[in-house]
Nucleic acid binder design. Structure first.
Lengths: 259, 259
DNA sequence: CGTCGAGTTGACATAATTCAAGTAAGGTGG
DNA sequence: CCACCTTACTTGAATTATGTCAACTCGACG
């Protein structure tokens, strides 16, 4: 039997239902029974995906978006000269593929960095939410707006900060976002990306990422050991990297009433 | 008497009502009478703003968003070292300040590059749209998603393209976006930004922007005369700058029915 | 007529890339 | 279980793109 009501677990999060969407949206507000039922109805069966798989290819037709349940995903664009820009790292709980809501052809590719579990959702189902569960539609809007602001921070990072700062900001962002879903993570986490991938995210070469991570380690700001990164002085690193954690305070006050 | 029905004017756009919002959303779909009435009800009186005014200051409390009716606005962030990243240029028809929907404190500043006319709108009114006019809420979502994809293109531009390409892409973006609202603009437009401002948008210094614009002119891709820019070979410039016009095709098929 | 902001240009400094070579680590087949 | 192969990481030297600093021009404006 599905658990339909919010239960506080040790992490302080509500476990709401088997639905990924309900799980994600339930982090922000307490969902009603009818909202949960609606989400379960429109959600397709969850799918397992092997590491390295391309979930979505740039310019291909798409009509699905996903909630990522387990694993890491990157979204990226390829440029004419063969270089790659990683637009976003996606962690468990994230909405992915939301750009396909607006375009029939995907503006970016999505690739599985690790084995995944994803929950697909046809974008046409959004209409049902807008018609019958306005609060859920508003929550999805709200999440995508927070993503927007986060992207804005990255733009400033690439446009106006040093290589060292860009790498530092990326690491802090990873730590904070992983921590929201997994309270076991405090300051250490497995860095599942290659240095080249970090470079493609930060607008640098892999070689230079290597030097910058070394430099950060020498400064005592981070430590590395067999694939794990530890933030040793988060305050100083945030200061040096111009990093702000945007996850603190979302304004939910304007949301419509639940139905 | 207000004109409530869509009328095709010489530019092929529907003139819908005195409401800025209705005007903007009416570009995408044919609005119903009740939708227009709802927009007019929640929209505050339009406001004139002098060039140079700060509409919104980073970290200040905000609860309004705007539609820009006339003039140019920039949104930007300041970094700790005093450098500035311009996040977005805003032209007539744009929604501005949408990030404040999610946060109580503004994540970025908004400044008037020219004299403006803006139409303010309290974010709490969004609730009314979600409750009573789902299609309008969905349209706003759709517009912000298109903005998101556009930001994504800029990220790739800053992260992975040369200074010349960044300046080229910025100029093409300006041309295309100005053209959507003003059909008189074909390939020439007044460049109301200083070279330093262009630099702050492209992640470059003003001095280097100067050199790159000169280089683009020498290549025959653009021409400049007393504050105006002309795109002389848009195809070649787009090619060289890795620029794609994303305005072509928004997918409206999933929108809920009008009320 | 003088001042001020913006654009222009040159010389020099520096950050990041490129190229190249070598090392460590993990996975696979015999 | 070892030998091999591949992939990622590391490091140095040379190169290039972009930034910095400083001086000069030009036009707008009071």
């Amino acid at each position: 039997m599905k658990r339909l009501f919010r239960i506080e677990n040790e992490a302080g999060r509500g476990i709401v239902s088997d639905s990924c969407f309900a799980e994600r949206l339930g982090q922000l507000v307490e969902l009603t029974r009818s909202e949960i039922a609606a989400l379960e109805r429109i959600e397709e069966r969850q799918r397992e995906v092997k590491r390295g798989t391309l979930l979505q290819r740039e310019n291909d037709e798409v009509s699905e978006l996903f909630v990522l349940r387990h694993g890491w995903v990157i979204s990226y664009m390829m440029l004419a000269d063969g270089s790659r820009q990683i637009l976003r790292l996606h962690f468990p709980g994230d909405f992915i593929g939301t750009a396909s809501i607006v375009y029939e052809q995907a503006p970016s590719s999505l690739a599985a960095i690790t084995d995944l579990v994803i929950c697909p959702f046809d974008k046409r189902a959004l209409r049902i939410l807008y018609d019958e569960h306005p609060r859920l539609a508003a929550l999805i809007f709200l999440i995508t707006q927070a993503e927007h602001v986060s992207l804005t921070d990255r733009l400033a990072s690439l446009g106006r900060t040093s290589a060292k700062a860009r790498v530092g900001a990326l690491l802090l962002d990873m730590r904070d976002r992983l921590r929201t879903m997994d309270k076991d993570i405090v300051d250490s986490f497995p860095l599942k990306l290659t240095q080249e991938e970090i470079g493609d995210a930060a607008g640098l070469t892999g070689v230079h990422v290597n030097r910058m991570m070394r430099a950060l380690a020498e400064d005592g700001l981070i430590a590395r050991s067999n694939g794990n990164v530890t933030i040793r002085d988060g305050e100083a690193l945030a200061e040096a990297s111009n990093y702000v954690n945007r996850f603190a305070t979302l304004d939910l006050s304007w949301l419509p009433k639940a139905r």
